[in-house]
């Protein structure tokens, strides 16, 4: 593991260097990421935008340590994670990252409480402590009275709140959200965004992918993708945070 000199880049929490993700489709190569160099600072709030197929999800998966680069480097808190093995990546996700998906991805047979507790289970917390923590978090995301419910008994907005709760359980430094409002109506989407803004204010770095500019407007930085490359960066520049 390469430890980057943190003195001059101390505030960069995420950094891609010439990141490429290439899918081999038969004889054809699809460059989902065609050499992206970008860095996000700790505590920032980014919206990644761009047309369908421009590589937004690909980039999120890489940043969230769910997938690996074909070439280039990815530094997470100064640590080069492009070379880490599967177990170490799992460990990173478990301890430092939170993920929110468009389709919520809750485990249907588990109650709200158990879904929120899931990261704590893998962190090895005992059941009393995790129950306590799940309760606190459920209240924080506005679901204090739904702990015993199963996902199928909840509305879309509530499910997404559970997903946010689960992503928060391990107290991650960074929250990734790939189109978190994609399956929600505008009002509910706005509420979810307000929750994310609140979390950002509490100091968490937040990176979301969205199509809707009203949603993106909540972010202080916008990154537009096009054909696997950065098209333009909007709002505050890299240095602004």
């Amino acid at each position: 593991m390469i430890e980057r000199a943190c003195s001059q880049e101390g505030k960069e929490i995420v950094k891609l260097e010439d990141a490429q993700k290439i899918y081999q489709m038969g004889t054809q190569e699809v460059k989902a990421l065609a050499g992206v160099t970008v860095s996000f600072k700790r505590g920032s709030f980014w919206a990644i935008m761009g047309p369908s197929g421009s590589g937004k999800s690909t980039m999120m998966n890489i940043l969230g340590c769910l997938d690996r680069l074909s070439s280039g480097r990815y530094y997470l808190e100064g640590q080069d994670v492009s070379t880490l093995d599967d177990d170490s990546l799992s460990e990173l996700r478990l301890r430092h990252l939170g993920f929110i998906f468009q389709s919520f991805n809750l485990i249907p047979q588990l109650t709200v409480q158990r879904n929120i507790e899931l990261p704590l289970y893998y962190l090895g917390w005992d059941s009393v402590q995790s129950a306590q923590r799940a309760k606190e978090i459920a209240e924080e995301v506005g679901l204090g009275d739904r702990l015993g419910h199963r996902p199928t008994e909840l509305s879309g907005g509530q499910m997404q709140r559970v997903a946010i709760g689960r992503a928060l359980a391990n107290d991650p430094q960074i929250l990734f959200a790939d189109e978190p409002t994609g399956n929600l109506d505008t009002t509910t989407g706005e509420q979810i965004l307000e929750l994310l803004v609140k979390l950002n204010k509490q100091g968490k770095t937040i990176i979301i992918v969205t199509h809707e500019s009203t949603i993106a407007d909540h972010a202080r930085n916008k990154l537009h993708m096009l054909d696997g490359r950065i098209d333009r960066i909007e709002g505050n520049s890299n240095e602004a945070n």
Binding site: L94, N105, I107, L118, Y122
Partner: peptide, 16 residues
């Protein structure tokens, strides 16, 4: 499969 994917995304190791 999806449940397994969710668990893995959250940070479960293969051996878990």
């Amino acid at each position: 499969t999806r449940e397994i994917g969710i668990r893995r995304a959250i940070g479960a190791k293969r051996r878990q």
